[in-house]
Each structure stands twice: as C-alpha cells, then as structure tokens.
C-alpha cells in the first residue's frame, strides 16, 4: 500500500491509502480517520472515510493547510499498526431480485447499457461466468458483504463482497448514467454493491429491490427513529432472496411499523477472514441465524 496525500482546494485533504480496493486498505483508512477524530485537531470540520481512501475537510482560517497535512501524516504509522478487529453488526436484508420496478427502469434506459439485448442480471451473470441468472443470484446472496463506505447520496452503502478476489462479482457502470433509479434498488458497479437510499440518478447495474428503507428524513420508521440513516462503515450485510408475496408483506409491515430487521452483534477480525474466508463467513452466518 502506498499512501498518497493531496489537497482538494484550500478546504480539503484527500488521502488515498491504496489505488486498488482491499479490506486491508479499508481498515487502514478507518483507523486513520478514527485517529483524526480522537486527536481533535483544531479546524477539522468533516471526517469522511471511503473504501480505500478518506477525506478531511478543514477550516484554513483556523489551521494552515500544511500544518493540517503534517498532523495527518503523523498519524499514519500508528494507524498502520492498529488492530484490525471490529465490534460490529450483521444485518439480513431481504431482496426481491429481478423485480418489475428495476426491470421497467432498466428497459427505459436500455440504450445507455453495454448490452441492450438483455437485462442487467443477464449481463452480470454472463460476464462473470455464471450459467444462468439463478446461479448468479445465488452467488450474490450467498456470501456476506462488508459496508466499506456510506455516501454518494444520503445513507447509501457501498458494499464489498466477502469472498476471494477471484470470485468477486465485477461489472462496469452504465455507459452513460441513468437519470432515474427506483428507491431501494440493489445495484452493482466495479466490485461494489450498493443500495440506492433515495430515487435519483445512478450508473450501477440494477439487480433487484429491497422492501427495507435505509433512510428516513422524517424518522418515523421504527428502526430509524434514533437516526435517519441506517448504515455505517463496518456493517456486514447478508442478502436474503424473497419472492413477490414476501416483498409485499414486508412493505406492508414497514408501513404499519411492524418491520423488524434481523440484526445481530458480531466481532469481525480481518486476520481471521484473510486466513479462511469460508470459515469466517460460516461463523458470521451462524451468529445471524443462530440461537
């Protein structure tokens, strides 16, 4: 890993921990942002961790940009040695794959896609070497995903598939971004999965939709009353394929305030995961579904 620092105008410092994505880069970025938060450097106004990088916004009237840069660099060595375990949570997210709403949308924007003759799922399955959409969906829903960034729009999680790199699903983004994406679309671009928290523009391939809201500015939904945004970096997600009936029932449960997402506390160790991803995932799923 080769850490690179650059000023983003006179109010930001951008720190690229690594050019390529890996969980090691994510953990180093996370520990550096934690260190920045704990060191309470004067003039820091926003601390934004990303997948393999992070960004600090600061007030140059309170701290000179070069001093800010020196402060960040001084934190790097300690962060590299930081413990890469996380007390976090695993959440089950129901997904209605191949649903009519994302299907209608992807047909509407077909001329912006690499392969206008099929659907995004057909395309994703084919270029990732799956025989059919069913086996592709089984792979997508088969392993847990690691939330490595929250952003783009309010509360949108970027998720990194927790399998060996050779098995990770990768797809390009649309040739030209769509101007519309249904709210709660489960998407994929590069190696990252995402859930669109709000309706709007988007460039990720669309695979399905979840009935579980993850952003509620009115804070009326039971599990979003304390804060309007559900996800934070470090969360672990497991998708559960559901059919139309299950989807409709879940939407109704959300509306009536009865929807209760399955969430369990869990400890994640990067070293354990690197040593044996399959066994680590099996343990995570045991916690999720276990007694």
């Amino acid at each position: 890993m080769n850490t690179r620092y650059s000023f983003g105008g006179d109010e930001h410092i951008f720190v690229e921990v690594d050019e390529e994505m890996s969980l090691e880069a994510f953990f180093k970025s996370l520990s550096m942002t934690n260190a920045v938060r704990e060191s309470r450097i004067r003039g820091v106004t926003e601390i934004c961790p990303a997948n393999a990088s992070f960004q600090i916004k600061f007030d140059p009237d309170l701290i000179a940009p070069d001093d800010m840069l020196a402060e960040l660099k001084s934190l790097e060595n300690a962060a590299a040695k930081a413990d890469s375990t996380l007390e976090t949570r695993i959440i089950e997210i129901p997904v209605f794959y191949n649903d009519p709403w994302t299907h209608e949308t992807l047909m509407r924007f077909r001329e912006r896609h690499q392969d206008p003759s099929g659907t995004d799922l057909d395309y994703g399955a084919r270029i990732n070497g799956y025989a059919d959409v069913d086996s592709f969906v089984a792979a997508h829903a088969g392993s847990p995903w690691f939330v490595s960034m929250v952003g783009f729009v309010a509360g949108l999680p970027f998720m990194y598939q927790m399998v060996e790199r050779s098995r990770q699903i990768q797809v390009p983004k649309y040739l030209r971004p769509r101007t519309d994406t249904p709210k709660l679309t489960v998407g994929h671009g590069g190696c990252f999965g995402c859930i669109y928290s709000v309706r709007g523009a988007g460039g990720y391939q669309m695979f399905g939709i979840t009935p579980m809201p993850i952003y509620d500015p009115k804070q009326e939904i039971s599990y979003l009353r304390e804060f309007m945004i559900f996800f934070k970096p470090g969360d672990i997600v497991k998708f559960k394929p559901v059919n139309r009936d299950d989807y409709d029932a879940a939407v109704e449960a959300v509306d009536k305030g009865r929807f209760d997402p399955l969430i369990r506390k869990v400890r994640f160790s990067l070293d354990d995961f690197q040593a044996d991803p399959a066994a680590t995932n099996a343990k995570l799923l045991e916690v999720l579904h276990g007694a």
């Binding site: 050019e19 960034m149 983004k173 671009g189 590069g190």
Partner: peptide, 14 residues
C-alpha cells in the same frame, strides 16, 4: 482492482 474499466474510473472515493 475495484475501479471499473474506464480510464476515468477510480475506486469510489470522497
């Protein structure tokens, strides 16, 4: 890895 195939793509950052 993870950036996407277009030369203007990067691993999603802030």
């Amino acid at each position: 890895f993870g950036a996407g195939s277009d030369p203007s793509n990067i691993v999603d950052s802030c």
